[in-house]
Write a protein that binds this DNA or RNA. Structure first.
Lengths: 247, 247
DNA sequence: AATCAACATAATGTATGACATTAAATATAT
DNA sequence: ATATATTTAATGTCATACATTATGTTGATT
């Protein structure tokens, strides 16, 4: 980061901007900005146009541009300085738009990713067991039951799976868990889709949801963790299968 | 903490607010807000006053309050809804002021947090070994050497430590690693400060930085990972020490 | 010519007011 | 009682004026 010569300024001129974003009007500012940066080929250290020009070209108020840029600043994607303007501090790419914080995973690294997810999920279960209130307990059980019904009614199993895990994250009372795991898990979505579609991967874990939920509600830490470990092991085994088939 | 029922609305009335923040005027908005929330005893699910009132009582513009609240929203600390207003989604405490994305850790859970950080750091090393280019290699070595010099010149060791790890994250070419680890690591900052100040924790790992950097640049995966494991082990051992002292 | 101080400038930072939008709360009709 | 329309209180957006501050430039002093 510090190797980038600060002098390399590559501002976008007005015509360029106009051409770039004229069509994408209603889009969200961050999205439009990302597109803009990508198409203009801006990289780390390069300078963005002043807020007011971005606002003008995107047909939004300066305040909205500000909020977007400040959000990026808080994420460490840009740096902002009075006279110096806004500069990129990280690469941005439109691939990240719908999975903003995605690990870009080749199939090969799925296992290692899983190894990171596993302790997090287990930790969530531990915390949830400790913190769950009676009221939340009822919610968890109800939700787990409902999701299984939805699944058995023929709905995409992933709906049930996601819903269940999110319920547990919520029960933990620490929103950061959900953030972290989502970031990691997003990478997995790649494997559900083409080209070697493994849409069933993880489906087999659904029958374990209800027992796990019951253990959490009952505050049975050890049992709950054992269930989660089993779930993680099943996923891991399936990932391995996929990888072997591939080679 | 999670015992708060979502229906329990505890708005702050005008006099209360006035009394709370009248004196702390020039302060930063987030700081003042935090103080406000803390002193009013607001917890998860509780409602904050409308932007405009906060602005009035803090003697700042609504835009500034908005930016602060939006920043918190992006961090998952508050939720915002049109009619419903802004509600706390996480505990805030004036201890967290300088570590915005903090995992709130009791000393007891530091070890588990460390267990999550460890595989991530190791994974970064693995990826960095694979991806490092010749040019980056030079940068890494130069930077590592420079940082050690800075450290030996009497600078706070954490400057050198952070700088080094960040260099490796960058070398991995995957910006997500830095994000994830930062989020996790932020929680650790608590241990550096009061009340049981462990400002030296981790300092002993600095001599390992240069050898590790050399291994990465040389593409020696096994050796590099071994160094990182050693670093992680040292940190873990020190955390254990602290915990034992505490009990 | 080199260095330093004063000034100009261009960007972000802040304040404010008006209006748009939306989701909760309330009233009304079925 | 339940559904539907209305009100309303909050956030969302835009626009404008002004404050602040890093940077760039000019000019004086050595």
């Amino acid at each position: 980061m510090s190797k980038v010569s600060a002098s390399k300024i590559k501002p976008i001129d007005a015509e360029m901007l106009e051409h770039l974003v004229a069509s994408e009007n209603g889009r969200d500012v961050l999205e439009a900005l990302t597109l803009m940066i990508e198409r203009a080929g801006l990289g780390i250290g390069d300078r963005l146009p002043p807020e007011i020009e971005i606002a003008k070209k995107l047909n939004v108020g300066r305040s909205k541009v500000r909020e977007a840029l400040i959000a990026w600043q808080n994420m460490g994607i840009v740096t902002r300085n009075k006279k110096a303007g806004t500069r990129l501090a990280a690469e941005v790419s439109s691939n990240d738009l719908h999975m903003p914080l995605t690990l870009k995973l080749e199939a090969e690294s799925l296992l290692r990713t899983h190894a990171v997810r596993r302790p997090l999920e287990i930790e969530v279960v531990r915390v949830a067991c400790r913190n769950v209130t009676e009221q939340q307990g009822r919610v968890i059980l109800a939700r787990a039951t409902e999701l299984i019904a939805v699944y058995e009614a023929g709905e995409d199993w992933r709906t049930a799976d996601h819903g269940f895990h999110i319920t547990i994250y919520e029960a933990s009372g620490n929103p950061l868990f959900e953030q972290l795991i989502r970031q990691i898990q997003d990478g997995f979505n790649a494997i559900y889709e083409a080209p070697f579609g493994r849409a069933h991967l993880g489906q087999a874990t659904i029958p374990l949801h209800l027992p796990l939920a019951k253990a959490i509600v009952a505050g049975e830490v050890k049992i709950a963790i054992a269930y989660m470990e089993q779930i993680m092991d099943m996923v891991e085994a399936e990932v391995r299968e996929v990888m072997e088939e591939q080679s």
